[in-house]
Design a protein around this nucleic acid. Sequence first.
DNA 1: TTCTAATATAATTGC
DNA 2: GCAATTATATTAGT
Lengths: 191, 191
Amino acid sequence: MLAIGTTKNKNEGRRRFSDEQIRFLEYVFETQSRPELRMKQQLANKLGLHPHQVAIWFQNRRARSKSRQTEIEYNNLQQNYDTLASKSESLKEENQALLTQLQTLRELAKKQQGNITTRHDFTNKSSNKELSGMISLSMTNNSTLLSENYNHQITDPFKDNTSYAQDDGRIIDTEDQRGSLVPNHPNWWEF
Amino acid sequence: MLAIGTTKNKNEGRRRFSDEQIRFLEYVFETQSRPELRMKQQLANKLGLHPHQVAIWFQNRRARSKSRQTEIEYNNLQQNYDTLASKSESLKEENQALLTQLQTLRELAKKQQGNITTRHDFTNKSSNKELSGMISLSMTNNSTLLSENYNHQITDPFKDNTSYAQDDGRIIDTEDQRGSLVPNHPNWWEF
DNA sequence: TTCTAATATAATTGC
DNA sequence: GCAATTATATTAGT
C-alpha cells in the first residue's frame, strides 16, 4: 500500500503531512471547508498537529479549491466559445443563402413586373402595386443587408427600429409583426 | 539610491528581499528569465543573497509570470466571446428580418400569381413559370430555415454559475477514505 | 543516475 | 480570514 511515506513518519524537518493526515483533513473539508475553531483544535489533537497548522491547511485548501474552480470556468468558457463560433458560422452561411434567394426573387419579380406594366393590363391594379412595393422594399433592404459590418441596424419596414432591443438576446415575435405587415396606405413601402 | 526599504535594511529574520534586490532581479528577469548558473552566482554576490535564493527567486518569478499569462488569456477569451456573441446576435436578427421579408415576398407573389392564373392570362408564360418555381424554392428552404433551431440559445454561458457549490472540485481517493479513516459515528472526532 | 523544469504544499506577510 | 508570496518538497521529463 503505497510504500512512500514509509521512512520519515517521525520527525526530521518533516514538512508534508502524512497521507493519513491529509486524508482525514480532506474528509472534513468535504463537509466543512471552513471549520470552527473548536473543530480545528480537535483535529489538531487527533492528527498530532498544531491548531495553527490545521488552520493554515484549511486556508491553503480553500485557495486551491478556488484555483481549480477558476480553471474549470476557463475551460467552460473555452467550450462555450467554440460552440458559439460554430453556430455563428452556420448563421453566416444561412444568411448568405437567404440573401441569394432574395436577390433571385427580386430579379425575377422585377422582370415579371416589367412584363405586366408594359402590357397595359388594367386588371387587378392593386395586386400589381403590391408586387411593385415589395420589390422596392427588397431593394432598399438589400443595400443595408449586403453592406459589410451591418450592425444589426437592419431596417425592418414592419416595425419601429427603436423597438429592436440590442443585446438582450430576445427573439422578435414574428407573429406580432404579421399583424401589421401591410399597412393600409397604398404606398406604405415608401415611408 | 531610493531609500524605500525604510526600516529593516539589516538582517533580522527578514525574509522579503529589499526593493533594491527585487528591482535588480526584475531587471535581469526582463532579459533573462532563465539565467545561467554563473549569472545567478554573480547576482547573489552582488545582492548579498545566497545563490540558491536567487535560483529560487527566478523559479518563482517564472511561475508568477505564467500565472499572469493565464489571467491575461482568460480575459482575452472572455472578450472574444463577448464580441462573438454580439455578432451572432446581429446575425440572428438579420436572419429574422430576411426570413420575414422572404415570407412577405412569397405571400405577395403567390397572390399575384393567383390573380394572373385565374385571369387566364397567357402572355409571358415563361416568366410566370419562373416566378412559380421561385416560390416553391422559397418554401422548400423555408422548412429548414424556420425550424425552431434558429431560436437557439446563445444567450447565457454562465447560467449554471450560481448553482455551483462554493468549494467544490477536490479530488479525493474515495476508496481509501471509506477504508479506515472515516468513522460512521456522527461524533467521530471525539474518539 | 543526475539535473532541471514544473508543480504541490506548508508557512509568511500584509491588509 | 484571505490574497499574494516565499521557500521547500516532490514529481516528471530528458
